[in-house]
Design a protein around this nucleic acid. Structure first.
Length: 865
DNA sequence: ATGCTCACG
DNA sequence: ACGTACGTGAGCATC
């Protein structure tokens, strides 16, 4: 027999949440719909993920409740529900009804009490409650779990008895009401005992079990606290009563009444249509509407028909690693006809001519398309790139066809349903694949003009058309070229490391007296902090932290720590670099990384499979890895050119801080200069340690400094860190102003911008959550700096590439590592290359401070320093 | 799939 | 009182 699974929904709480979480939306008649939309998304997600058999949405009755009888001011501090929200409750009810879900409200009771009673009495096999209100956590038992909404609306956290105990210092969920009795609840205007907050309340309730228990032992308390507790006994007992959810509301329902009824999809379909919920309309589209899809005029072709000019081009591959993958099909969308084709189309002369013609090809990911076609000796010419354009809108949820479609309330075709995911990904037969390709091409055709228009409205179209789009071609070139890696160098290192690692392993086992997995933080934690009883400073969510900064502090306490740190260092080199890199060397003896252009939130590139932007350099041992990266031809060298202090220069330019700008105009050593100012000594008297600290402060500034962060980094006290920061802002007042303005701008506009109009949305900037807001503020400061630096080097890459094309040089760009470019060139070209690169990189933009580029050539990457 | 740790700018 | 430095990707252990 099937399990009964009951889902109890706090209708008021979720509708409130949705209202405040979502931007305003209206339907065709101008009714507000954002809360109703968010509530519906939540409901559908729950139906899908929880698969309940029974469900009920409870609402507060709008009248006064029994709680007002004992305390007239109950919920007295609440602001009146905005009318934009109030008018959406009837819509929410219509939606529940349309989906066949029972609703309930009862005069003089709140939704909480109805849910509490049902959770207590319904004979379901499993019961889950969904709410945004922590009050309901008191209902958690071994039978009942509470799903509580986290940030956003569709993310939930499942609160179980165990998790509750972990969160609330070992308390039982029922003791939530005792906590509220002492600490009160601002949002419900429950008073509690004045002067007792969450921390103290948890302490007292863990010690005495309950409010009643506390008053039995009130003599044990001391001083002010004792006075406060005694003086407010009435308030505490009243508060507890108010916070207690009633479990015996007289209700006349059976479990059967709550069964989810089968509904005709026609009803929610028309409702969602009238509300303008486009994506939901698609989901409930009745079968007859399938005719709509048929109307997609799809034709299977083996040769490209005459007359195709500008069109959408889909070149489908199974996985994202486009260097290895074969083409599995094509989709081509023109305004009045969609074509689909098998991989053989690549041999069709008409198709080949079209690819290399000036007709515009709108792709989802032009770099992927260009690469796939290049393997068949085709050069993709005249292209647009929806993914790149969408990236610049900085949508939440990453840059995918689905997220761009979602932005315009459209539903992208379901890739997973057709191709599968993970290990089960498989090319389907053409009768399944081709309709998908047709839909995908159609969706791209629909979306591209919308994104283009939005970019224009945002003054971002130029960024797309003159920076990102041409850059994708340069990146494709770099990926295609690849960088030569000398396997023998890596093999020698592997041998050496293998020996040293086994020796270290034995040494460590000997020192601690047993064998264990040194790579397991969990096992290592047990050895260090339980067996050896070393002090544990820091914890992670799951246990002891064994991170490097912790080990560093433990170093003097036990000789094994040194060996563990060395083991970690060598193990990392061995597995990630020495072994890892060998696995991705292709038959041509080269590594071809992929540069991801639509991942980083700041506008930087990222590098995958492998990541060539994090090859070791700081520690000599690791730096040796770079000896394996060599020129691809005899008589050639590598050349690396890097921007000096680009982020600080960008900050000097953007803030127009007089002191900082002058320092760069003077070409001073910026960290020494900062140290000289902050410590008040002549530049010549700056010690190494002073410079090191000033450098940390400079970095901290770029990251959106906090006293805590700086204190951690420099291993000094928070007070000392704060003093540094205060001093810094006194000396560089315009930097402080610049940072405040960045935050203000984020608050006003909801986003920040870089020099080239790249945007990052900062939704949490006005959050009431201290943590989220702090994070948002630091992001608002860091993103314009990091992002503008990314803009600049991207533009420099275009300039360098163009200059190389225009020159007779054979030199070519291989890699970008955020502030440096790596080239290879015949030895005799090196002088010319240095001049060309330095010129292009330094002159690519005109700032109020000069840009400086340093460069070095060598016979391996190791030697370019 | 997720968390921890650590490599880079 | 809160609990953080900004941005990435990869390997390993653990669930």
């Amino acid at each position: 027999m099937m399990e009964n699974k009951l889902l109890l929904i706090d209708g008021n709480s979720l509708t409130y949440r949705a209202f405040f979480a979502l931007p305003p939306m209206t339907d065709a008649q101008g009714r507000n719909t954002n809360a109703a939309y968010g509530f519906t998304m939540m409901l559908l997600k729950l139906l899908e993920e929880e698969q309940p058999t029974h469900m009920l949405v409870a609402f507060d009755a709008s009248s006064e409740t029994f709680r007002h009888d004992v305390y007239q001011e109950y919920k007295g501090s609440r602001e009146k529900t905005p009318s934009e929200l109030r008018e959406q409750f009837p819509i929410v009810r219509d939606i529940c009804e349309a989906l066949g879900i029972q609703m309930m409200e009862l005069h003089r009771y709140e939704a909480d009490d109805l849910i509490g009673t049902l959770a207590q009495t319904m004979p379901a096999d499993r019961i889950r409650i969904v709410t945004g209100d922590k009050d309901l956590l008191q209902l958690v038992t071994d039978q009942v779990e509470v799903l509580i909404t986290k940030r956003g609306i569709t993310d939930v956290l499942c609160m179980t008895e165990e998790l509750f105990a972990e969160t609330y210092g070992g308390l039982k969920p029922m003791q939530m009401i005792d906590l509220k009795g002492l600490m009160g609840d601002k949002s419900d205007n429950i008073p509690g005992v004045p002067g007792i907050g969450e921390k103290t309340a948890i302490k007292l309730i863990s010690a005495y079990g309950s409010v009643e228990g506390l008053y039995e032992h009130v003599e044990d308390l001391k001083g002010k606290q004792k006075e406060k507790v005694i003086a407010n006994e009435e308030l505490a007992r009243l508060s507890k009563e108010l916070a207690t959810i009633k479990l015996d509301v007289p209700l006349d329902v059976t479990l059967d009444d709550l069964q989810i009824s089968d509904v005709d999809t026609q009803v929610p379909y028309s409702l969602f249509q009238s509300l303008g919920f486009k994506s939901l309309t698609n989901r409930f589209a009745p079968v007859v509407e399938e005719a709509d899809k048929e109307q997609l005029n799809v034709q299977t072709i083996t040769s490209l028909p005459e007359g195709v000019t500008d069109a959408v081009l889909v070149v489908e591959q199974l996985r994202e690693d486009y260097m290895e993958e074969d083409i599995i099909g094509f989709g081509i969308a023109t305004p009045d006809q969609i074509y689909v084709a098998s991989p053989e189309l690549v041999n069709d002369p008409a198709f080949r001519a079209w690819i290399e013609s000036d007709h515009q090809k709108i792709c989802l990911d032009a770099k992927q398309v260009a690469f796939a076609l290049r393997k068949h000796d085709l050069k993709l010419t005249a292209f647009d790139d929806l993914l790149l354009a969408g990236y610049l809108l900085n949508l939440s949820g990453g840059t995918t066809l689905a997220s761009i479609a979602g932005h315009y309330m459209l539903m992208a075709p379901n890739e997973e349903a057709v191709l599968g995911k993970g290990a089960k990904r498989l090319a389907p037969t053409d009768d399944l694949l081709h309709p998908y390709l047709a839909e995908k091409a159609r969706m791209i055709e629909l979306l591209f003009p919308k994104v283009k228009e939005e970019l224009k409205a945002n003054q971002q179209f130029e960024l797309y058309e003159t920076l990102e789009r041409p850059l994708s071609g340069v990146l494709a070139e770099m990926e295609w070229t690849g960088i030569r890696v000398d396997v023998a160098t890596l093999q020698d290192m592997q041998e050496d490391l293998r020996g040293r690692l086994t020796d270290l392993e034995q040494l460590i086992y000997g020192e601690v007296g047993e064998e264990f997995n040194i790579n397991s933080p969990k096992q290592l934690g047990v050895i260090l902090f339980e067996k050896l009883e070393l002090p544990a400073f820091k914890k992670t969510k799951t246990g002891y932290s064994t991170a490097a900064d912790v080990l560093e502090k433990l170093r003097p306490l036990h000789p094994v720590i040194d060996h563990i740190m060395l083991y970690r260092e060598l193990q990392k080199l061995q597995s990630t670099y020495v072994e890892g890199l060998q696995k991705v060397i292709k038959e041509d003896g080269k590594i071809h990384t992929r540069f991801a252009q639509t991942i980083a939130q700041t506008g930087r590139l990222s590098s995958v499979n492998p990541n060539l932007q994090n090859i070791p350099v700081r520690i000599e041992e690791g730096r040796k890895i770079r000896k394996a990266f060599v020129p691809s031809e005899a008589g050639w060298s590598l050349y690396a050119a890097d921007y000096s202090q680009i982020e600080l220069r960008v900050m000097a330019h953007m803030s127009e801080d007089k002191t900082l700008v002058q320092a760069f105009l003077d070409d001073a050593d910026i960290h020494t200069q900062t140290a000289s100012s902050v410590f008040g000594v002549a530049p010549n008297d700056v010690t190494g340690n002073m410079r090191r600290q000033a450098k940390a402060v400079n970095f901290g500034i770029i990251y959106g400094i906090s006293d805590y962060g700086l204190s951690q980094n420099l291993n000094i006290s928070r007070k000392e860190a704060q003093d540094f920061i205060d001093r810094y802002f006194e000396l560089f007042p315009q930097i402080k102003l610049f940072m405040d303005e960045a935050i203000e701008k984020a608050r006003m506009n909801g986003f920040v911008e870089t020099l080239m109009n790249r945007r990052r949305n900062i939704p949490d900037i006005n959050s009431k959550n201290f943590n989220l807001r702090g994070f948002a503020e630091r992001t608002a400061i860091n993103t314009p700096i990091q992002g503008s630096a990314a803009d600049i080097i991207k533009k420099a890459m275009l300039d360098v590439h163009a200059a190389l094309e225009a020159s007779p040089l054979q030199a070519r760009l291989l890699l970008q590592v955020h502030d440096e470019l790596i080239f290879e060139a015949p030895d005799e070209e090196l002088d010319a290359l240095k001049t060309l690169v330095k010129q292009a990189m330094e002159q690519t933009v005109d700032l109020s401070v000069p840009l400086r580029v340093d460069g070095d050539a060598g016979h391996s990457w190791y030697e370019t320093k």
